[in-house]
Simulated assay, not measured.
Amino acid sequence: MSENSLSEAEYDAITDAAAHWCMRLHAGDCTAEERRAFTQWHDADPLHAFEYAAMLEIWDVADHLPRSEPSPVVLPFKQRSRLRTYAVAAAVCLAALPLAAFTGWEAGWLPSAYEHFDAANGLRKVTLGDGSQVELNLGTELVYRNYKDQRQVTLKKGEAFFKVTHDRGHPFIVKAGDGQVRVTGTQFNVWKYEDQVRVMLLEGSVQISSDTQHAGVPLSPGMQASYHTGDATPQVAAIDPNDAGLAWRQGKLVLDNLALADALPLINRYLNKPVMLADANTGAIRIGGIYNINEVNNLVPSLPKVLPVYLTQNQDGNPVLNSIPRKAPKG
């Protein structure tokens, strides 16, 4: 289907459908049948996918709007349903109105800039609206928003290295998982995988918090902090001089004699289907080597050739590493 061949009504129908699916998929009562129907609609035409991706970005902005609301007005059911369908689009309409946009900017809840970046096919370097430089690892996705009182990046997944433009009166916030990194101007790396986050500081100073309830922990150059979802405070330690955590910037994955339990999170970030461990004994087996991040898929099937393991598959289709039992000595 060509966008140019569509009538205005047909194009509006696709936009309406995208808004509907965005609302339903974010609803707590969305059913498996609805999700299958959405996938069928989404994959039926590239324009469907494009409109839905655009609607998701609108939803993301709307999610940051103030939560206080005036007293509700009771409406007939059909009208309420229709309004809910267009609730996300209404946020953009608000931003499109100069007076409302100015008011939202002055109040500090509407950004003056919104940028989305991803590195689905390889390493990528981008410049944010404030001039800050960001290097994105393979498979990384982040969003940048510029508010009146702060610059804000949400690291949705992956890893990024930041060179932040100094602006003491306009702090730079990186949200990752439940926590955040707060800086004014510095160089640091943030890695997020599932519920794990690791921050490495090379230059300047930052404040790290693992959630929104506790005060930040200061980091100085040569230090790192890590946390999981649910942690009250991050764990802080010195960066090992031999740490190869930044080798990805040269397109390399370095595993320096790591236990599989520690190596798999580093490997899995580059895989569509993460590798699982059969048990703790398998996780204790150690692995080393230097690998090209674009060829990590080839690493998994080769592991039985270099380690005492064999591969199986679980019911979800994930490869599973199993240790080969040692034979008891004779005699």
Results as ranks from 00 to 15, higher is better:
residue 14 I to R: 01
residue 298 N to G: 15
residue 278 A to Q: 06
residue 100 A to P: 02
residue 241 P to D: 09
residue 325 P to H: 02
residue 256 D to Q: 15
residue 155 L to D: 07
residue 197 V to E: 02
residue 103 T to N: 04
residue 246 L to D: 14
residue 5 S to Y: 13
residue 108 G to S: 09
residue 66 P to D: 04
residue 195 D to M: 00
residue 323 S to H: 05
residue 305 K to R: 15
residue 8 E to C: 14
residue 133 Q to I: 14
residue 48 H to Q: 02
residue 194 E to W: 02
residue 201 L to K: 04
residue 55 M to K: 00
residue 169 G to C: 01
residue 121 N to C: 09
residue 44 A to V: 05
residue 100 A to F: 06
residue 12 D to S: 13
residue 62 A to T: 12
residue 237 A to W: 01
residue 328 A to G: 04
residue 205 S to A: 15
residue 329 P to Q: 15
residue 112 S to C: 14
residue 3 E to N: 14
residue 72 P to N: 06
residue 260 L to Q: 03
residue 246 L to N: 06
residue 233 T to N: 11
residue 219 L to D: 03
residue 187 Q to I: 09
residue 325 P to F: 08
residue 132 S to G: 12
residue 304 P to Y: 08
residue 325 P to G: 00
residue 327 K to W: 07
residue 176 A to T: 02
residue 268 N to Q: 14
residue 54 A to E: 14
residue 3 E to W: 13
residue 165 T to K: 08
residue 326 R to W: 12
residue 86 Y to K: 00
residue 233 T to G: 05
residue 275 V to F: 03
residue 270 Y to N: 04
residue 99 L to S: 10
residue 197 V to M: 15
residue 317 G to A: 09
residue 198 R to C: 06
residue 243 D to W: 05
residue 320 V to Y: 13
residue 322 N to A: 09
residue 7 S to R: 12
residue 166 H to I: 08
residue 180 Q to F: 04
residue 38 F to R: 06
residue 258 L to V: 01
residue 69 E to W: 11
residue 210 S to N: 01
residue 109 W to C: 06
residue 92 V to G: 07
residue 182 R to Q: 05
residue 139 G to N: 11
residue 109 W to Y: 09
residue 223 M to S: 02
residue 139 G to R: 06
residue 3 E to I: 15
residue 161 F to D: 05
residue 240 D to Y: 00
residue 307 L to G: 06
residue 37 A to H: 09
residue 232 A to K: 01
residue 85 T to F: 10
residue 279 D to M: 12
residue 280 A to V: 10
residue 330 K to F: 06
residue 322 N to F: 05
residue 206 V to A: 15
residue 248 W to C: 10
residue 251 G to F: 03
residue 217 V to S: 00
residue 110 L to K: 07
residue 153 V to G: 01
residue 212 T to C: 10
residue 294 N to G: 09
residue 274 P to I: 10
residue 29 D to F: 14
residue 303 L to M: 10
residue 45 D to A: 08
residue 28 G to Y: 10
residue 18 A to Y: 07
residue 275 V to L: 10
residue 284 A to F: 10
residue 129 G to K: 11
residue 173 I to M: 11
residue 50 F to I: 07
residue 109 W to F: 04
residue 324 I to M: 05
residue 67 R to H: 09
residue 181 V to S: 03
residue 149 D to W: 12
residue 321 L to F: 02
residue 174 V to M: 03
residue 250 Q to Y: 12
residue 273 K to I: 12
residue 301 P to Q: 13
residue 143 V to C: 07
